[in-house]
Design a protein around this nucleic acid. Structure first.
Lengths: 130, 130
DNA sequence: CCTTGACCTTCCCACTACTGGAAGCTCTAT
DNA sequence: ATAGAGCTTCCAGTAGTGGGAAGGTCAAGG
């Protein structure tokens, strides 16, 4: 498979696949013309990566998860640790966003949104005291 | 005020304040020795920016919001539009994170987390079909 | 007067995870 | 022969800092 084909099959843009090769996540062979040549194992890896990225894992987490996946002597505890930490980070982010959301939605609700200049949103930004 | 003092008062790192000058968000005067010299207006602007950033507005949003703040003939509708769009982006992000959270928490719950290799998390990554 | 240490300056690199674009080579079909 | 699609590498840029080098400035102490 050339890069275009595997891009379609894996759902990852060709650019991204080249980038993953750059950072050593996949190592496709090369044809004589210099084109990357991907096999089914590469496709499987890329699909794995695409799924892990969809779940929000960082590239470094993905690297570790792939290594664990390929290590038949792994302990599932190691995988669970990574996932749990990731989950904690997600929870932190959600909490942070919800706090923003809370404040913003109040301000938006209070703002008349007409052609007059008075605006509670700007007042908050200018004079907010924690 | 020198940069150290205003950094402390505004709560922004000196590095960040220099960056904000670079991109034209603040324009402090310079003393004869070349040091930046900030006045109360600068402090007010930086505090405004710090608050806007806390609420998650992008730098470009901040630039627009500051311009509106300084424009006495503004329409509050323009401010409300920016805030509403930002709120929508936040809602999107929260939804995305909660979807990840949902999937991940199930997988984590199913994983034994012991020293055996079998792991539902890796199975999902490797064989997930949407 | 000299030195020390805390400030300040500019400049450049690194980070995350790509994305876009330019210049140029290869393949396929007409 | 040529057009167009697909491939290659390399370079630059994104957002918003953070880290650190190399060097100028200032105030206090000996």
């Amino acid at each position: 498979m050339n890069i275009g084909e595997i891009a379609e099959k894996s759902g990852l843009p060709a650019k991204t696949i080249r980038y993953y090769e750059d950072i050593g996540l996949v190592m496709p062979n090369r044809s004589q013309n210099g084109y990357r040549h991907f096999n089914d194992t590469d496709l499987h890896k890329l699909t794995f990566l695409a799924r892990a990225r969809t779940l929000g894992f960082s590239i470094e987490d993905c690297r570790t998860l792939m290594a664990l996946y390929e290590d038949e002597t792994r302990a599932s505890a190691d995988v669970k640790d990574i996932a749990t930490q990731h989950l904690d980070r997600i929870d932190d982010k959600i909490a942070q966003l919800q706090s923003m959301r809370e404040t913003l939605s109040h301000l938006v609700a209070e703002c008349a949104g007409d052609n007059r200049p008075d605006c509670p949103i700007l007042n908050d930004l200018a004079y907010h005291r924690e």
